[in-house]
Design a protein around this nucleic acid. Sequence first.
RNA 1: GGGCCUGUAGCUCAGAUGGUUAGAGCGCACGCCUGAUAAGCGUGAGGUCAGUAGUUCAAUUCUACUCAGGCCCA
Length: 1052
Amino acid sequence: MYKQYSDKIKYSEIEKRILEFWEENKIFEKSIETRDPKKNFTFYEGPPTANGRPGIHHVMARTIKDIICRYKTLQGYRVNRKAGWDTHGLPVEIEVEKELGIKTKDEIVLYGVEKFNQACKNSVFTYVKDWNELTRRIGYWINLDDAYITCTNEYIESVWWSLKKFFDEGYIYKGFKIQPYCTRCETPLSSHELSLGYQDVKDPSIYVAVKIKNQPDTFFLVWTTTPWTLISNVALAVNKDVDYVKVKLLDENKTPYYLILAEARTVVLPQGFEVVEKYKGQDLLGWEYERLFDYVPVDKKAFYVIEGDFVTTEDGSGIVHIAPAFGEDDYQVGKKYDLPLINPVDKSGRFNELITDFKSMHVKEADPHIIQNLKSRKLLFKKETIEHSYPHCWRCKSPLLYYARESWYIATTKYVDMMIELNKQINWYPPEVGKGRFGNWLEENKDWALSRDRFWGTPLPIWVSEDGDMFAIGSIEELKEGYFLTDDGKKIPVSELTDLDLHKPYVDKIIFEKNGKVYRRTPELIDVWYDSGSMPFAQFHYPFENKEVFEQNYPADFIAEGIDQTRGWFYSLHAIGTFLFKKPAYKNVIVNELILDKEGKKMSKSLGNTVDPFEIVEKYGADTTRWYLVSNSPPWKATLFNEDDLFDVQRKFFGTLINTYAFFALYANLDGFKYEEDEIPFEKRPEIDKWILSALNVLIKEVKEYFDDYDITKAARAISEFTIEQLSNWYVRRNRRRFWKSEMNADKISAYQTLYHCLITIAKLSSPIAPFISEEIYRCLNSVTNKEPYESVHLSLYPEVGPIDEQLLHKMEVAQKIVSIVRSIRSKNNLKVRQPLQKMLVVVKKEDQDSVREMEQVILEEVNVKELQLLDTDSDIVIKKAKPNFKSIGPKFGKKVNLVANAIRNLDGNQIKQIESGQNIILQIEGENLEITPSDVEVFGEEIKGWIVESEDGITVSLDTNLTPELIEEGLAREFINRVQNMRKDADFEVSDRISIMVEGSENLQKAISKMKSYIMQETLAEELEFGKCDSGFVQEWKVGSEECKISITKK
RNA sequence: GGGCCUGUAGCUCAGAUGGUUAGAGCGCACGCCUGAUAAGCGUGAGGUCAGUAGUUCAAUUCUACUCAGGCCCA
């Protein structure tokens, strides 16, 4: 027996049952093991951090990954899928700090690095249960039991190996650079971390008057949004090519004073200024000014005007204040002019004791005080607030400072050309991310700031002697040449240690003695992005183990993550892979956009517009959610998440699919169809079967092409369209009667075989996207027939493309169009389909005439018309029209095209005949003879003399709307059948129950019913049909046509 | 300020190597069906294809600019 559904379908319940089935029978494992090991398809999982709950966007990314992997499996590839967890880094530390109530780095040291890191290790997997549950629930198949974890010794060892390679080849150096620095986390951030944390904020925007030496009452006007950096000011920069002016203004006491600023920026001045002098920037160079704040003594020449080509007149005053410790441009010109570097800010972002007035104050807090100070000294010219986007720490959200710091770098700029070159081998979906966003990023490549001054992360494996000599360690084996220094000063050879943890604080206690020198580890950790970017080899503990496994699995055939990873994982994979292996790390990458709420706003906790994936999946089912996310818009376009549409997907696609299956199951069970009969060859099946099979085969072909092109959205849409429109709405609806018949003949077997084949094929095609429902249908079908040797659709293979009868597809298309036109006419004339009509006329293009003839029966049945007359376009009663073919006449006649087009529209019957017979005709236009060829003109039958017509796509149809008494009677009979059927249902009769009918009604009605008696009885499964009093059985009163009547039915 | 993407019906999305009737689904209106039925189907009304200028015989499609939204970078 095929499974039948009695109640409303509960998707979640089906899915949970399927999950259990998969797990009990190890279907995932089998889907890998049963595939040819030589047909490898490599997928890399980008490791998430499990210390936050997963969101709906994770469902999106995981769905995409899963779809491609399942599809490739269906194609016979062996797709190993190793899960991974990102465990290190600041986000973890921050969570732990919160838990422990720790606010600064010093407190961590006090608390104990060992304990702190242990807490981090424990915290990493806080939400791992949620992650695992969501992964499981949405059917994302990935091997969670064999996940790579970035904080294991093995993983770290592989990372070290790669770092040593960088180091030994001279690509790691210690530099001094301006870096975005988080004063809360007390660590510099890499540029890709920086990109994660831009926020729109309001900052003070102040204009400061800087007194020029030896010029009474004359000031430079200087603009800044970071007042606190003024304390560290050492110079002012102008652009030597920009025009500057000196203007005269009056203060509140009407005393004149003078300001110098860029001419283009006088817009910032109040009304009533007077230009008294003009300069080029060049003229101002070297001018000295009075220092604004003198807390910090300087030992070099400073406080004069220098030249900076970065100075623009787009904002500010055209004069830029320079504080070399706090800005990239500033630092560079500072070096050029040998300016002093003033940094009175400590590592937590507070002013040191030199800054007596603002001592211990965080620089951002100090801003208003500094402004107040300037104001009291009458140096504040103007104060505003501006809103701009400013980098913030991507995790703790504090504003970053630009800060000169020592740091370790990877010299990625040394091999950026290779990165750019290799990027061209990667297929990006969509391509513009690869060319544009990622490509631009590579072209502007800066060296990778590798080190982090934190605790929980992969230690930088570089040991340095006091005199600055250094070397890198690339394995645990190498480490064994060192000594472990115990707290009480004992030196134990590392080789004698039983357990070794490569994290802080342990590694820091390992020292090396070589050539009489002592080497200690440099205290920094490395950027976590380096961890995840190492996963291609580190997940296999390469090169210490699994050499072959790694080599077979590099590069990845496919990865997929969100666009936010452009500068994150996509980059770190590429940067590391390019250097180590001279190959790109991945060949195909799907980049998915954000998921926005239905208003198009970004989902965020603060707006309260986030969607809980667990709830959604429970409510609509994982398949519906997956299908919706993927079919609504391509992954690389932002999805506006709308629950109503989810419901729609469920109802339209899944509802229809299951309904179609249920229809099949209902009758197949009644008939005991088990697909035991011989397969009826394609050629021997009825037209309609050949048609749906052809359409199905087209679908198989298309879906493969879409999937192969990573276009999941088009694949999903094609499957959905076929299922709803072709299969359910046309094939099943038209063929219902074939299944009702009682005897089992060749026609019925063909119908069963055809529908069965369609259903099981759709199950296979949709299995990558909707793994649950497809499994349900596949198993329901196959468990009865055992036609396929697989216990799961996910172990089956992608269906072969069978025969496609193109002509038949076209014929049906024409027929469907004609049917649609007739319906339109009926609807406009208020003629129900139930009312039979005598005749219709059809005019189509010559090449389509055969189609209409062959589809005549189908058309007539669909529209309930008795006779179809196909009119030749040559027929006298068809009025033909000519339409210009612009594609052809456009280039030929140029500017005259519209005149020619009009002339063509007005061609008379004879001229059209000429054209149709293949002759050219001459048109006189503005005194010129122009020759028109048949290809310039499209001729179509537009009207039929004496008939009301409707046209569409070159098909013209007319309907005889005259109702003869016979037709009316027939209509009445149909109406009558309709009432009886309704009653059968109201009375809760079974579809196969036989009945007897008693009718009480007018003579007209009786006459009509008598005439059609046998037809009525057949349709309603009636054994008796009598006229008389309705006093027993199930009785209802009706209006049939215009006739009142009473009907009673009784079960036999 | 720079880069990339997007703007098509009330909503979500298709589409067009430039060719004169721009398509679906939802929603809406009207109707149908009742042997897939706590479903299903049909018909219809909805569009200056964001705006402006240019190239062209012809632009919603190509180009430039503008506006709006998004993302990324400064």
